[in-house]
């Protein structure tokens, strides 16, 4: 058990380390490093000046050395300064994180609350009318481009009906629950529609597989009522793979959050990362991306543990 945990921890650490280097390297390849930006801002800077500045900032050193310097500082708690927000990176990051956690938390709950029962209902009688309808809807959800759905929601609820804001969040200290909540309705709806189809399909597949097992068939043949069979035996077995797949999907969910937040101008981590990349705020983009990766890896790790705990057959090699 500890060996298994240890192995997974190592794996996550390796992924994080590789990611940090790759992202750091890619950031260096983005158009306009700080010196380029200064040059374009101030045409008087000569190429010698630029070279001097580069040396000053250490930009002339090899990439590995720069990376290790950055890594050393980051481990020491110095994450640099965000150009875009004119704040130290952690101060810019934390409010956005809170917003995204709220958005994703509500979405995940809603999506699972809808998707898991729907998947079960479909699996109990495969190829029935119910199954057909649920499948159709699930596929529609999976196939909708999230950014387009967001535009449609804005068109319907903001442009035509005018009942919900097209984006943003409540002004600071905006009072009343509804004042706060109305800004969440469309993003949550958008993200939920984008993810519920996947959850439904996973649950359906896992449940059909679980119902196919011999002992479930036996229980059914012996006359245990369908409801009891389904809930008693199969659900537990079906949930095991679903836990894993849902957790493997955190990355996908976050990609959805980036789109949703960007279209709805919702100030979360996704929009922050997008803005940081587009605005040449490399410190912020780098740290934010790595932070999200770290959170996702922790989520996967927890799901692995849950899986091992749920499934008595797994050996913790």
């Amino acid at each position: 058990m500890t060996g298994f945990l240890f192995q997974r921890l190592i794996q996550s650490a390796v992924v994080l380390a590789v990611m940090s280097f790759v992202i750091y390297w890619l950031m260096g390849l983005m158009p306009g490093d700080p010196i380029d930006l200064m040059i374009s801002a101030d045409p008087k800077i000569t190429s010698e000046d630029a070279a001097r500045l580069r040396a000053l900032y250490g930009l002339d050193k090899p990439i590995t050395e720069r990376y290790l310097n950055w890594l050393g500082a980051a481990v020491g708690g110095d994450f640099g300064f965000s150009r875009l927000y004119a704040k130290p990176v952690p101060e810019a990051l934390l409010p956005a994180l809170a917003n995204t956690v709220r958005l994703l938390g509500i979405t995940l709950c809603l999506s699972l609350l809808i998707g898991l029962p729907a998947g079960m209902a479909a699996a109990i009688r495969p190829y029935s009318k119910t199954d057909y309808t649920i499948n159709l809807l699930a596929f529609a959800g999976i196939s909708l481009p999230a950014f387009w759905l967001a535009l449609l929601l804005i068109i319907v609820f903001s442009v035509f009906l005018g009942v919900l804001p097209a984006g943003g969040v409540a002004a600071l200290g905006g009072d009343g629950f509804w004042d706060q909540a109305k800004y969440l309705v469309l993003p949550v709806a958008n993200l939920t529609i984008a993810s519920v189809g996947g959850h439904t399909r996973y649950m359906r597949a896992a449940m059909i597989e679980a119902l196919r097992q011999d002992y479930i068939r036996t229980a059914r043949a012996k006359g245990a009522g369908p409801a009891r069979v389904v809930l008693g035996h199969a659900l537990r077995n079906a949930l095991i793979p679903v836990v894993t797949i849902v957790s493997l999907d955190f990355g996908f969910l976050f990609s959805g959050a980036l789109i949703t937040e960007t279209v709805f101008a919702y100030p979360g981590m996704g929009k922050l990362i997008f803005d940081a990349i587009m605005g040449n705020d490399y410190n912020l983009a780098l740290v934010a991306l790595l932070f999200v990766t770290l959170l996702i890896l922790i989520g996967n790790l927890l799901a692995d543990l849950a899986y091992a705990w749920l499934d008595p057959r797994i050996s913790y090699r």
């Binding site: 058990m1 091992a308 008595p312 057959r313 797994i314 050996s315 913790y316």
Partner: peptide
């Protein structure tokens, strides 16, 4: 051959 049970 892998044994049955988590700690086998």
């Amino acid at each position: 051959v892998r044994g049955k049970g988590p700690f086998a």
